[in-house]
Design a protein around this nucleic acid. Structure first.
Lengths: 327, 327
DNA sequence: TTGTAAGCGTTATCAT
DNA sequence: ATGATAACGCTTACAA
């Protein structure tokens, strides 16, 4: 590992000049620049990020915190983050906070001592504690949380998206639409999505039928049972996650109901699972990868923070259709 | 941010002594230790990893490289890596190599200048170039690649697993078993899995019927078509990835064939998708999360490198059954 | 048991 | 346009 002094010696200049050339600053002649560049190539010199970070009090590290690394939604956002970070010459430091955010404090400390350039929070809100732990110099932004507080975020408008999703089902002719919601105490977006559904149903003078799941596949079958117990004549189910939506499709078929002929099913997020069922799952899509990318670019500009609302989009696949003509 | 000198002054000792206490070395009295600890708490002192790393030429960073961050298999391995890293006090630096390993060199350089403690390669082999780029001080290990070269790796025995999977289908009574393999030029494990299938089929004096997909969902339907074109009477399909297996299940049902009554389907990996189809997909499971964890512990011990073979396990779900009695 | 001092490799300030 | 020099915050011989 050649150091900046090695390069300086080789080029017959001072380390300061090498630094200037390497960092594209001003203050050297064309001739010296050439000599330095040759020396850099000859010695295969690489800037030491640790030393630079120590001196400049800033590294090209972006911290990413997700509740769970293996989650499909988080993975897609991370993919976007990674792409944008790579393009900007940043490295991504990954942390798992756990569903209850247990580990978040220690990660934040680590990121601070590594002088991270910024932090992205996936599916988590920026609490005052987080802000404080990070100190005044590290910007933070959250993704996939529609935050009404005005703090930096990149997300869709969950209330509006759920409203539009419900309107879509209403537009197909459905009146008896069940909502498989999420637990608002553990999942932040659960509440606005429920509210959007309620607004659309109320406007259409339809009777809301709701129950609560966990967002995961396992809770789908039971949720469907609870919905059907309340109204066996439901012609459509709106699940606020694809995993639950897929579970509902499978469970309906197991119960002998055809999808979408007897019952339509609509999911949320547009993760890859939505395409892996038969029939494929219609869903309210979030541009997850793009949200990850946008979060990074916004974070690095570090001005114009505040929330950014991304567009949602209804993806019509095989699991939705008009209701059957009933007597 | 308090520095070690601040703590030293506050405790009335030298920075060296603070360093000794903080790092649990020997050479101080109980009394000074107490005073130093009090000062650390009072000033909320945190070791600066950048400065330490610069001095010791080693940081607690583990690099993780995956072809694609959003891939289900890679995500699960990453989850395991993250857990083990966190337990050991290490931070994870994530990189995406791209399917063609385009970006790998620049990541490796970055990891080297950050003085990473080690590097984990997901679904990629350790080439001489990688070894050389990393220099002599950074150990590297690969996961989910059964490597015959003897280099450090944590993986199942893919050949044996595919052999066992095929034996399982044979044991159910199937004779006409089609293999939906992977492209060995882009996916390393494709070859041993094909070989395992071939060995079992040859031993059982059955005629192999094979075609090649991409490992992704999208290639499943076409692969099934090619298999059925070769032998329309196939009673079982062995797909060497769950995504392809799920696609085959869906396509068979679309063609009016029942699973598993008419055709059995077996997948590979045991990613979450396997549980999201109806019927659920029987599959040859890899302990992905555990493989990630094991890779990290092995890497950090840094002795006893060389390959570690993890157990594979057949998970019997709804997509496999004995063949129908035929005339 | 404790302190002094010299780096680790870089950048920034101030001369020249 | 260029160079000397002093940090950045830590660890580690070496001394005491």
């Amino acid at each position: 590992m050649a150091t900046i002094r090695d390069v300086a010696r080789h080029a017959g200049v001072s380390p300061a000049t090498v630094s200037r050339v390497v960092n594209g600053l001003v203050g050297y002649s064309d001739a010296t620049r050439t000599r330095v560049e040759q020396a850099v190539n000859a010695l295969d010199y690489e800037t030491d990020y640790l030393a630079r970070g120590l001196k400049t009090r800033q590294t090209s590290v972006i911290g990413v915190l997700a509740p769970m690394v293996s989650d499909a939604l988080a993975s897609q956002v991370m993919q976007g983050i990674e792409i944008a970070a790579q393009e900007g010459g940043y490295a991504v430091m990954l942390g798992r906070t756990g569903v209850k955010s247990t580990f978040i404090a220690s990660y934040l400390r680590t990121l601070r001592t590594y002088r991270a350039a910024g932090v992205v929070l996936i599916s988590a809100v920026i609490t005052p504690e987080i802000r404080q732990l990070l100190g005044p110099n590290i910007p933070v932004i959250s993704v996939a949380i529609s935050d009404k507080s005005g703090s930096p975020a990149v997300a869709i408008d969950d209330e509006k998206a759920a409203y539009d999703a419900t309107r879509y089902l209403l537009g197909l002719g459905h009146r008896r639409i069940g909502l498989l919601a999420g637990d608002p105490s553990s999942i932040y977006v659960a509440k606005p999505r429920s509210q959007g559904y309620m607004r659309a149903m109320t406007e259409a003078r339809c009777i809301p039928v709701t129950t609560t799941g966990t967002f995961f596949y396992e809770s789908g079958a039971q949720g469907l049972g609870e919905l059907l117990a309340q109204d066996p004549a439901l012609t459509a189910i709106f699940a606020v996650s694809d995993e639950m939506g897929v579970a509902v499709v499978n469970e309906l078929q197991r119960l002998g109901r055809r999808v979408p002929e007897d019952v339509s099913v609509l999911g949320f997020d547009d993760t890859s699972t939505a395409r892996h069922v038969q029939p494929t799952l219609s869903t309210m899509a979030q541009p997850l990868e793009e949200m990850g990318r946008t979060a990074v670019t916004k974070l690095l500009r570090a001005r114009n923070l505040g929330p950014k609302v991304m567009p949602h989009r209804l993806v019509e696949r095989g699991s939705t259709a008009p209701p059957r003509r009933t007597s």
